[in-house]
């Protein structure tokens, strides 16, 4: 006869175990890690280009650039001055998982870096379930996407610690209400640290730079 057998195990326990090991290794090496998530085209790569261009002189940053296909983003980050860039091509998978990060870290000398930036696959749904061992998630949205984005993707916005609203320079051309966007985000996550910027014009980037040097919530 069939018996009911208690399992009580997280479905992603395998991923979480690997993520915990990554987190421990990064902390042992005093490395701060950020996982950048957004829809495709919100400006993750642009933000990272700017950030490594500015911080790269003083802080050694390791970069893991995830994409479904191509190493284009990784190449952009190298061109922007990223010395330690590891591309991860998922070959169709819609998110990065901890195993991919663990593999990417295999040939990355952790003693040489002080920060690790992970650029996730452009997707606001799937990456929310996967812990990569990062200290915090940074979620980007841009003014061309609509101010209700946080309401549409609550899981991702709830799990992120920082929100960036990018492409401020396009604000005059969009039906985007900044105050509504902020309120929508704070309804989901009252502790959000919010930055407004334009990676294109540089507007708002100074505030971001001074925070990201020593990111704390």
């Amino acid at each position: 006869m069939a018996a009911k057998i208690k399992i009580e195990k997280k479905i992603l326990s395998e991923n979480d175990k690997i993520a915990a090991a990554i987190r421990e290794r990064l902390h042992q090496n005093n490395i701060v890690s950020l996982n950048f998530v957004s829809s495709p085209g919100s400006g993750k790569t642009s933000l990272l280009e700017k950030t490594i261009g500015y911080l790269g002189k003083d802080i050694k940053i390791g970069l893991i650039a995830g994409d479904v296909q191509t190493e284009n983003d990784a190449n952009r980050l190298k061109a922007a001055g990223g010395e330690i860039v590891r591309p991860v091509v998922t070959g169709g998978a819609c998110h990065l998982d901890a195993r991919m990060i663990s593999k990417a870290l295999e040939n990355l000398d952790l003693e040489k870096i002080q920060m690790l930036f992970i650029e996730n696959v452009g997707n606001l749904v799937c990456p929310s379930s996967y812990d990569l061992g990062e200290d915090m998630k940074v979620v980007l949205m841009s003014v061309t996407e609509g101010d209700d984005k946080p309401l549409k993707y609550p899981a991702m916005f709830r799990r992120s610690s920082v929100m960036i609203i990018n492409k401020l320079d396009l604000l005059p051309h969009c039906d985007f209400n900044m105050e509504t966007a902020r309120q929508n985000a704070l309804k989901i996550n009252g502790k959000f640290k919010i930055f407004e910027m334009s990676c294109r014009t540089g507007d708002g980037l100074d505030e971001w730079y001074s925070w990201v040097k020593n990111p704390k919530i």
Binding site: A2, K4, I5, K6, I7, E8, K10, S129, R158, G190
Partner: peptide
């Protein structure tokens, strides 16, 4: 998905359930 306290209107809300992805049991 509105994390605002209905009593004191605080935004500082801990999520106690809703994030589960668990295998409970098998037969």
């Amino acid at each position: 998905h509105i994390f605002i306290c209905p009593v004191c209107e605080s935004f500082d809300i801990e999520m106690t359930t809703g994030g589960e992805l668990d295998i409970e049991y098998i037969e």
